[in-house]
């Protein structure tokens, strides 16, 4: 294919690539929202899709000494790309799962993963990212445009630190047209080694932060389950729940949920109370309210000693279940 034909074909198909990029972006974002991730918080840089500029496409197809294509238009798969930048290595897995589980929408090709790069080149510290190429599983109609199953879209997933490295080096090192001096390469490699170390420390810190009986026994998820099954309402947990579980962490064990379930058999009136008073106070909107009722009834001495909020909340709940609070 000549450069002129390349340019003409791109002009003709640009709108299709544009539609496919938008489709991939919105699908992943919708899945994150469905998984209750706050996009503004989870994605450290607002996710966008972008079409490659025609001049850099032509440059990549015909004028790069390191690229030898037989059919450059077909072989260049990043004509449209979407990038997701997250905070932690674990967050990358979350986006990966979304991509790999949506096989009814697209076929994916896992074409780059830093974990494999590290395996193959353990002594090398260089650009790190996760790359996929997605093509529609079958032709997809988006408005007036039909996206054929041959159209690729590159998805990049990185941590914020990996992204920082890429931002600094991409145009200057990876795509550099002149030979980069060893001292520069060494400096960049050192920074990547540092970034990899820091990413690991971040993950370790988060793991330790989230390590405890609440996580180990899935207390929040199981309370949410009890809440939904008893009230038909989804729990809206807030910071209140975290503080409360933290304050009484030592009372949390593998038996706690069973104890609360037994308690709720006796106090089944609580489900009705929650529905009735849902708008009265935020405490009723959070599944941790069951734990709190249980504490009022069964661990009152301890509860009153370490209660981190105003007594008004305890008074409300104690009145619901007719438990005296003034006997200690």
């Amino acid at each position: 294919m000549k450069e002129r034909d390349f340019r003409a074909k791109w002009e003709a198909e640009k709108a299709i690539y544009d539609a496919w990029g938008a489709y991939v972006l919105e699908t992943v974002k919708a899945a994150l929202v469905a998984g209750e991730y706050d996009l503004d918080c989870f994605l450290k840089i607002p996710a966008k899709y972008r079409l490659k500029n025609i001049d850099s496409l032509v440059d990549k197809a015909f004028y790069r000494p390191d690229k030898k294509y037989t059919d450059p238009y077909k072989e260049i798969e990043d004509k449209v790309g979407v990038r997701f930048v997250v905070l932690l290595l674990n967050d990358i897995n979350i986006v990966q799962k979304i991509i790999e589980h949506n096989t009814s929408l697209w076929n994916f090709e896992n074409c780059r993963h830093f974990a494999e790069d590290r395996e193959k080149h353990p002594l090398l510290f260089t650009y790190q990212s996760v790359h996929y190429i997605l093509r529609p599983a079958k032709d997809i109609a988006v408005g007036a445009i039909t996206i054929p199953s041959s159209i690729p879209c590159e998805v990049q997933i990185r941590t914020l630190l990996q992204h920082a490295h890429a931002e600094l080096t991409h145009d200057h090192i990876y795509k550099s047209k002149k030979t980069v001096k060893p001292v520069v390469q060494r400096t960049v490699a050192k920074s990547m080694a540092l970034i990899e170390t820091t990413d690991d420390f971040f993950s370790e810190a988060m793991k330790k932060l989230n390590d405890g009986p609440v996580q180990e026994y899935g207390i929040v998820e199981r309370l949410d389950g009890l809440y939904f099954s008893g009230t038909d309402i989804k729990s809206h947990n807030q910071k209140f729940a975290v503080v409360l579980l933290d304050a009484f962490e030592d009372l949390i064990d593998d038996q706690l949920i069973e104890k609360i379930q037994l308690f709720l058999v006796e106090y089944d009136i609580i489900y009705g109370v929650i529905k009735e008073k849902y708008k009265e106070h935020i405490v009723y909107q959070q599944s941790v309210v069951f734990f709190l009722y249980w504490l009022i009834r069964n661990k009152q001495c301890r509860l009153l000693k370490d209660w981190p909020f105003s007594m008004e909340i305890l008074d409300l709940l104690a009145s619901d279940i007719g438990v005296s609070l003034r006997n200690w």
Binding site: S319, V323, S324
Partner: peptide, 18 residues
């Protein structure tokens, strides 16, 4: 009324000295 209920609950409820 909430305060009154609190008095009643504390006087007569479970764990009270009633």
């Amino acid at each position: 009324m909430n305060e009154f209920k609190t008095r009643v609950r504390d006087a007569l409820g479970v764990k009270s000295s009633a």
